[in-house]
Simulated scan of single mutants.
Amino acid sequence: MSVPQYPAPQYAAVVGGGTMGAGIAHVLLAAGASVTIAEGDDALVEAARDRVGASLRKAEDRGKLPDGVTAAALVDRLSFCTDLSSLHADTELLVEAVPERLELKRQVFAAAATACPAAVLASNTSSLSIGAIAEGLPGERVIGMHFFNPVPVQKLVELVLHDGVSPEVVAKARGWAEALGKTVIEVRDAPGFATSRLGIAVGMEAIRMVEEGVASAEDIDTGMMLGYGWPMGPLRLTDQVGLDVRLSIAEHLAAELGPRFTPPNLLREKVERGELGRKTGRGFYDWE
């Protein structure tokens, strides 16, 4: 049976304007949606505004926006709020991109479910259970839409399906992701889904190899890039994602799936020292 095709939503919302949220807003705007970003306070709103604007201008400079579309025109369709109750009532798609804390995501969706009564509620979580997020909410409207960083460049969206999601919501989410120019894979709501589970397994083993003196980070990454065709090695990817983020995911997977995901001591030590990767200037590489 063919999957219905959907154009980009007319009204979309993104909760959280950090790196991922700004990237998601970027691709929604470029596909024709009017987008509202919800943030916690005015300072975070301004940071998100700058982040999305810079991303769109960079895409325009590189000829990556649709023909005849300017970054300025897309920014005109971008709005902001600090209270979810003020979101557009006709919002069709709401994507949360807040920190990986279950209760925080549940609170976001509880407020959004009321403010946007018809919206698909999509979580960008890379590891938390979609079913757990959906508990006590209109679960048929809740789905995982896992985007990848940098969102305007990466072509994959991982749709995560829990038992209670409606087929119509799955079809809409797939159609919208494809309207954003993404390729979709569907996975069952299992710990780490498909991509995070495999990515963390390789990433943790690569860190153990550095810890044990098997090889340098640079040589491990070069081996995976040239030997296996990876576009980026697992340690540089860890720096891009954030060592703190990968530590949190690894701890979650270790609790859910067992000790094979236990984070190496080297990762914990780097996080304790504030060596979180590109965002702090140092991780397994020197980004300064």
Rank of each mutant, 00 (worst) to 15 (best):
A43Q: 12
G136V: 05
V14E: 00
T262D: 15
R246N: 09
E46P: 00
A48T: 12
H252Q: 13
D244C: 07
R197T: 01
M145C: 15
A113C: 06
P234F: 01
P7Y: 03
A25S: 01
P9S: 05
D239H: 04
Q154K: 10
A89F: 06
M224K: 10
G144V: 09
V15D: 05
L226K: 10
A134N: 02
R260G: 02
L44W: 15
L161T: 12
R208F: 08
A179I: 03
G242I: 08
R141E: 03
K64V: 10
M1N: 05
R268T: 06
E212R: 15
P117L: 06
M232K: 13
F147Q: 08
L237V: 04
A217C: 08
E92A: 14
A59L: 09
L161F: 12
V52T: 08
R282D: 09
R49P: 09
S129E: 04
R62F: 13
A97K: 00
W230S: 15
D41E: 09
A254Y: 12
A12I: 03
Y228Q: 02
L137K: 00
E92D: 09
G40I: 13
L137G: 03
I207T: 04
V95E: 00
W176G: 13
R278A: 09
A173G: 03
L237W: 04
A111M: 01
T91P: 00
Q154F: 10
L74S: 03
G23W: 00
P150C: 10
E100L: 08
T195R: 03
I185V: 15
A118T: 07
A179E: 05
P234K: 00
L74P: 03
P99R: 03
L156F: 15
R278E: 14
I249S: 01
E211W: 13
E256A: 14
A38M: 05
G203D: 06
E211A: 11
F80L: 09
A54V: 03
L28S: 06
V202S: 04
W230E: 15
V187T: 12
G281L: 04
E60K: 08
T70P: 14
T70G: 12
L28M: 04
M204S: 02
T91A: 02
L93S: 11
E288N: 15
R62E: 15
L44N: 07
A43P: 01
R51H: 13
L44C: 03
A73D: 10
P138I: 04
A30K: 13
T36D: 11
R188S: 10
G175D: 03
V202N: 02
L180Y: 04
A115S: 07
S86G: 14
A255P: 14
E46Y: 07
A115V: 15
L94P: 04
K172P: 14
R273W: 02
V214K: 11
I24W: 00
G63M: 12
F148C: 07
K58V: 00
D41H: 14
A25R: 03
T82S: 14
F261A: 13
S126Q: 01
G16V: 02
I200Y: 05
M232C: 08
V35T: 02
L267G: 01
A71N: 05
G213Y: 06
E251C: 11
D90I: 06
P152S: 14
V3R: 06
K155W: 10
R62W: 10
R278N: 12
G175K: 06
A73K: 06
W287D: 11
Y11A: 12
P150Q: 04
K105S: 05
L78F: 09
A177Q: 08
P263T: 08
